[in-house]
């Protein structure tokens, strides 16, 4: 396990360019979040810790996103392992969602967003011309912060993905997919005899699990979750955390969360973002017990954000 300290004395992981950009120091203070004033030296543009994953499946290199003149994330390099849960944490507006949305090209629909850098999925460049974003999104599923079931029946919600991608040969196969997806999302028992009810008639927690069922019905390789529990009570949250544990056996999961406890509970690795930069990445235990970077420490001890 290599770690990189502030002064850059540690070895830089090979093949990853972590040179600081000149713009970094200039723009930072103006955008600085509440809390301790940020020292320029603290934001050298280098990621502390280890961006490498053991069995890397999603690899992001030097990803930059600009919304017009707003440089939202800078030079993010991060790997996500095959059966790994990576938690993205950081103060509001630091670019966690933006980074997440790069991974399934959801930023494509935002006209002002310009994404540069390289992201590969199983070695394949997802921003290459050959790859249709439609095909990509079938492989990289997403669960949103606010539960957003379609205004259709529960069944149709889960069946939608398989239907548009033609994953089921006939009705019985579709039934099977819907059943297993709801079961794995831990919702089957509650909705068994109300498949035809509108998805919006469920409670918030149930809706979120429905959205997860909808996502796994397509059987993706990676699941992106943007604060999936922010609208849920502790019980529903616990169920979804169990679910994430369960799902991580088969999927690579990237989860954005504002809850340190949640990050500690569900993730194997944690990535700390700050003002569009990836400050520190490491194993969850290490980050929470022994953060290497001053900003990470400030954040997890509650001094920022």
């Amino acid at each position: 396990m290599k770690s990189i300290d502030n002064d850059g004395t540690g070895a830089v992981p090979s093949g990853i360019d972590l040179q600081p950009r000149s713009v970094v120091g200039v723009e930072v203070p103006r955008e600085a979040a509440a809390g301790a004033p940020v020292q320029l030296t603290e934001l050298s543009g280098r990621t502390v810790g280890d961006v490498k994953a053991q069995d890397a499946y999603v690899v992001a290199e030097d990803v930059n996103v600009r919304y017009g003149s707003n440089h939202a994330i800078r030079d993010i390099t991060l790997e996500i392992g095959r059966n790994e849960v990576v938690a993205l944490i950081g103060p509001s507006g630091c670019g966690k969602s933006t980074f997440l949305r790069c991974l399934n090209r959801m930023n494509d629909s935002i006209e002002s967003a310009i994404v540069t850098g390289r992201i590969t999925l199983g070695g394949q460049d997802i921003y290459s011309r050959e790859l249709d974003p439609v095909a990509l999104r079938a492989r990289v599923g997403m669960v949103f912060q606010k539960p957003n079931p379609f205004p259709k029946s529960i069944y149709d919600n889960v069946a939608y993905g398989p239907r548009i991608h033609g994953l089921a040969a006939d009705r019985s196969e579709l039934d099977h997919i819907v059943h297993t997806s709801l079961d794995r999302a831990g919702l089957l028992k509650e909705v068994r005899d109300r498949f035809d009810d509108p998805g919006t008639s469920l409670s918030g927690g149930q809706q979120q699990r429905l959205c997860i069922a909808r996502t796994i019905a397509v059987n993706p390789e990676v699941i992106l979750m943007d604060e999936p529990c922010s609208a849920l009570d502790p019980i529903a949250t616990a169920r979804i955390e169990d679910l994430i544990d369960e799902l991580s056996k088969n999927y690579a999961i990237v989860i954005v969360t504002h809850s340190m406890q949640q990050a500690a509970r569900v993730s194997q690795r944690v990535a700390y973002f700050h003002l569009g930069m990836l400050i520190e990445v490491d194993e969850t235990n290490r980050v929470f017990t022994n953060p290497q970077h001053k900003l990470t420490e400030d954040y997890i001890t509650g001094r920022i954000g």
Binding site: N104, M106, S109, V134, A135, L136, R137, A138, G141, M142, F144, K146, N148, P149, F150, P151, Y160, G161, I164, H165, C211, R214, T215, V218
Partner: peptide, 27 residues
């Protein structure tokens, strides 16, 4: 039409035309 519905469909891999035909138009 709420953008969340659009995002949900796009996130599942619906093409632009499918998003319009299946979700935007009915709503």
């Amino acid at each position: 039409v709420p953008p969340s519905i659009r995002e949900a469909a796009t996130g599942l891999g619906a093409s632009r035309m499918q998003v319009v035909a299946h979700h935007v138009l009915p709503l």
